[in-house]
Write a protein that binds this DNA or RNA. Structure first.
Lengths: 332, 332
DNA sequence: CTGAAAGCGCTTACAG
DNA sequence: CTGAAAGCGCTTACAG
């Protein structure tokens, strides 16, 4: 061929009119062929499809969406996909969303070079944004624009639509258990600089009330290596605690490997616990005792709010609470 | 207020015209206010924004996209987000895509109730689809529609655009290493029923050529538990192999924990290896020796193809090859 | 600073 | 079986 006619779409892409012209039919005949609709002869269909193929025609999702309404899209913002908690949550959200025929647009606030721009882009394409917005939630909700936002585990929910995680009952249960097995001193591995994190404070209070001495170790990097280093120091210096309570499961895994390397038996010499309830904790030896949350429940609550917000339905209580629970395995 | 006027959008949602009417301005003044454009007085802007808020106005992404072109969207299909390999890949793709200002639509073929429908939905919203389509790749590419597809690690690439993973050099290096440390018999944990998987066949051939006896254990469930069970049986029955080569890292972790429970020292008594190179393998003790692939490289190759396909650029070689490499850690 | 017109690419009635 | 018309909700020139 001497080269196709000039194409009209953006970036020189073919539009339905180009295909119609190439096939010598009207645009609605092209629609019928492309969408497998009835009321078109087989030969016409073939001819149209061939023209579409030759022109590399791909229907515009915008043109089509404007007419059909299109599917709903959920923007999911996670913290850091390299921490296994994020993908576990994403998996639960994706599954639930698929059941509702929603698509999921995934963004990683930690990995994004420019989180603000990323949120704008997400807001432009999603009907609702759900996610961990961390400390800058207020700023970031603005960047999302007029699209409603569901906050996951916000530091301060205020009256914003959010899924609140309640860890207090699980922490109390853990403290009961620790006292029951004779723990008298515990160290808490906390990523927070300065005052303890909410989780750290919860652990400290629950243990202290039961006569367990608590030492909060601040500034621990939120990785397995960070927790391993901190644990190694803890085991080497001064009086050894008989329990190490980590901020999350990944950090608890670091604590476990530090104990193993130091020849410290878990749970014989030291007990170790995490937070989150990842499957990961069942793969190591000893298996990890942890304060778990059912992420399917979190996803269900988030989607529940998201659907209501997308429909602009009135939400008498824009918050859902999900409880953590104590998951006893081998390490404590 | 006695209740707002009837709204014109789908689902009774407000459109730009509703806001214009409520604020007593024209529609392009609403556009200016919503998008923070210049050439509008502060008071008018306030009035428009208030009307938009009252009406819960959210601009249609279709209306806007039709005019502006909108951002590119990549549909990413993964296998099963609960296997850590998928999120590791997704993280790499999301990061790379963010750099290109593409959004990522995430779908899980394993979790989806109806994978065919899911792929149609993805095809309708994405400019390119990238992913693991498994054995049914041919059928599924059809379901995606006219949108181009990049296959990740396809069983049979043919001449379809794809990122091919080449594991052969890494397998040879592993076999060299195993022979070097004196291994004489190895068991391969293979999920495949019937003939061995490509990975299994590669391992078998490389070991056999070096005089290492290989026993392929078929039908092993592709989970840590499945591999642990198979390993437990392997250690109990008959002559013990001195190496267990797992199909992937998660299965290798199962093999490790089975060894630990059986009191078998790794790597002293038995050596264990995996496939994939997940961070996970560095968190356990002993750390996992594995045949790793750089997922950033995979993501870069996939995005490279995706961009070219989205631009309908000619692709002389529609395939990119990424090599696995031997990552020696403690377990072998 | 504000508005009337045109048009983005598609599908949905409706006519023939 | 095929096509001419209308319209989805927005933004981009252009005019005032």
């Amino acid at each position: 061929m001497a080269g196709p006619a000039r194409l009209s779409g953006p970036g020189g892409r073919a539009t339905i009119l180009d295909v119609a012209a190439a096939a010598g039919v009207s645009r609605q005949t092209v629609t019928r062929a492309m969408n497998g609709m009835p009321g078109i002869s087989a030969t016409t269909r073939e001819r149209v499809l061939a023209a579409a193929e030759a022109l590399q025609y791909r229907p515009s999702r915008f043109g089509r969406g404007l007419v059909t309404g299109g599917e709903r899209q959920l923007g999911l913002v996670v913290d850091d996909l390299r921490n296994p908690y994020s993908p576990a949550l994403a998996a639960a959200v994706v599954r639930r969303a698929a059941g509702l025929c929603w698509n999921v647009l995934l963004a990683d606030a930690g990995l994004a070079g420019d989180a603000g721009r990323m949120l704008e882009a997400l807001g432009a394409q999603a009907d609702v944004v759900v996610g961990y917005l961390g400390g800058r939630a207020a700023d970031w909700v603005d960047r999302v624009g007029p699209v409603p936002v569901v906050l996951l585990d916000p530091a301060d929910p205020g009256d914003a639509p959010s899924v609140v995680l309640d860890r207090s009952a699980a922490v109390e249960a853990l403290a009961d258990h620790l006292r029951g097995v004779g723990i008298v001193s515990a160290a808490v591995l906390d990523p927070r600089t300065g005052p303890p994190s909410p989780r750290g404070a919860l652990l400290e209070s629950a243990c202290t009330r039961r006569g367990i001495a608590v030492r909060i170790v601040p500034d621990v990097a939120m990785t397995a290596e960070g927790a391993a280093d901190a644990t190694t120091r803890l085991l080497a210096d001064g009086p050894r605690p008989d329990a190490v309570l980590a901020f999350n499961d990944v950090m608890a895994l670091g604590a476990l490997s530090a104990c193993r390397r130091a020849g410290v038996d878990v749970p014989g010499d030291v007990r170790v616990t995490g937070f989150d309830g990842l499957d990961l904790g069942g793969l190591v030896a000893p298996t990890l005792t942890t304060l778990a949350v059912d992420l399917d429940e979190v996803a269900a609550a988030a989607l529940d709010l998201a659907v209501a917000l997308a429909d602009a339905a009135p939400l008498p209580t824009p918050q859902r609470t999900v409880q953590h629970h104590l998951l006893l395995r081998e390490s404590a």
